[in-house]
Design a protein around this nucleic acid. Structure first.
Lengths: 237, 237
DNA sequence: GAGAGTTTGTGATAAAATCCACGAAGTCGA
DNA sequence: TCGACTTCGTGGATTTTATCACAAACTCTC
């Protein structure tokens, strides 16, 4: 959740949030969808270790999830395993990539070129997982023209045109909290349908826009509830 | 969320995860705890706007959560509102800070001084929300001695001693995935009880350690399920 | 190729989370 | 003071999520 990863009503958190989404009654639960990327990530790790097959039990132990849950989650989408053997890892990876629509490269625009924005732009893990940072914007004219990795910081005023050109449907917001809603409005106006928001605020967006949140403070505060304190409070183990 | 913000069984969430935590049967549900930081964040935003009171309805609209849910969540901890009026914002903020144990400053150690680690170290929002980055470590000897904001990067070998000195109970992991488990083991050995992990991996930790995850890819992939595609797939609105 | 051992997929059941709706408490204006 | 309105806190119904447990399918050894 959320906590970004908000447990927001809709999109969260993962400290994040989840989006409601009232779809057809036979729609697959959002909470199930939320676990698929975790399965995928774990499978890719196993694949890198050279493994060929795994089981719901092994996966479950690795993730701290029951094997039944994993089987039931996957069963929403088809039958991917084989009794007595388990799951073929490369095959299941391909299936999950298809289900999550990351069997392609999504161009993503990033707004905000402070230290967080630059860290995101420099992250090398996106490309192999379905995403490419295609442009970086900042509202500060002083930053425009600077290089960030292979990209050049562009003026925020260029967002509508560039989103169009790039065919981007996803935007990442890495600006200070006071600018976040304004940037979100701009992105949505430009045609963006999914937003990953690093600013500590719940955005107001049309229902057709999916927002996910990342806010480390939400996670830290969730944690401190359990860490309790020397003063003998509850909430601890 | 688990994702991280994992929706893990226990701790993860969110694109993060959540930790199980089998506590007394009268324990407050983890999912409720997960929403408290979001309430707190929103109340602080309202306070900065100069507001004195709010209602469960207003809060709910702002967050996309039902007002009943907010009232029920808060009712686990006491009666903070007044009929006909709502909640006094400064008062409720203080109560939530107490409940979440952020009515103090938690020293946090950060491991990893790449661009992500530096972005975290430079973030100015921690101090006013209960946390202070007290030390930064990196395994790369070439980085040791460099300045990051007001801090100096220290050798990873110093972790045990420094965690002791600082009395830190929380660690943030911002290292590449292949180093994450090793760093986690070191931190736990040093006495850390809560970890915020930015590496895309589910850590193996003793049950008394609380782990929260942040992984933007988890959120992006969750999102693309719904963004569907031109090729007429399901999963969309 | 028979038998012991795995592992999946899934109905049925149990547990958890959310929502509904209402009594009680409080506000406000005249 | 009274009546119309607002809002909380909460028991209980409803909906959602997770777990259980088992038949069927498959593997592997001898």
């Amino acid at each position: 959740m959320s906590p970004q990863s908000d447990p927001s009503p809709s999109a969260n958190a993962s400290a994040s949030g989840k989006s409601s989404s009232k779809r057809a009654k036979d729609a697959i639960p959002d909470i199930v969808i939320g676990r698929l990327p975790i399965y995928l990530r774990t499978l890719q790790l196993l694949a890198e270790e050279g493994r060929e097959v795994t089981s719901s039990q092994e996966l479950g132990e690795r993730l701290g999830i029951s094997s039944a849950q994993i089987r039931k989650d996957l069963s929403h989408f088809g039958e991917f395993g084989k009794q007595g053997t388990g799951y073929n890892i490369p095959y299941l990876i391909r299936q999950l990539e298809k289900i999550l629509h990351v069997d392609r490269l999504w161009p993503v625009v990033l707004v905000g070129a402070g230290s967080l924005g630059r860290a995101i732009a420099n992250y090398q893990g996106f490309e192999s997982r379905g995403f490419r940072i295609a442009a970086v914007f900042d509202e500060d004219p002083a930053k425009v023209g600077e290089a960030v990795g292979a990209l050049t910081i562009e003026e925020a005023s260029q967002i509508p045109q560039r989103v169009q050109e790039l065919g981007a449907q996803i935007g990442i917001i890495a600006v200070p909290v006071h600018a976040a809603q304004r940037v979100a409005d701009t992105l949505i106006q430009a045609g963006i349908r999914g937003i990953l928001c690093y600013a500590p605020i719940t955005l107001k967006v049309p229902e057709y826009v999916r927002v996910e949140y990342i806010d480390p403070l939400i996670h830290l505060q969730h944690m401190t509830y359990y860490l309790g304190q020397a003063n003998g409070e509850t909430g601890g183990a």
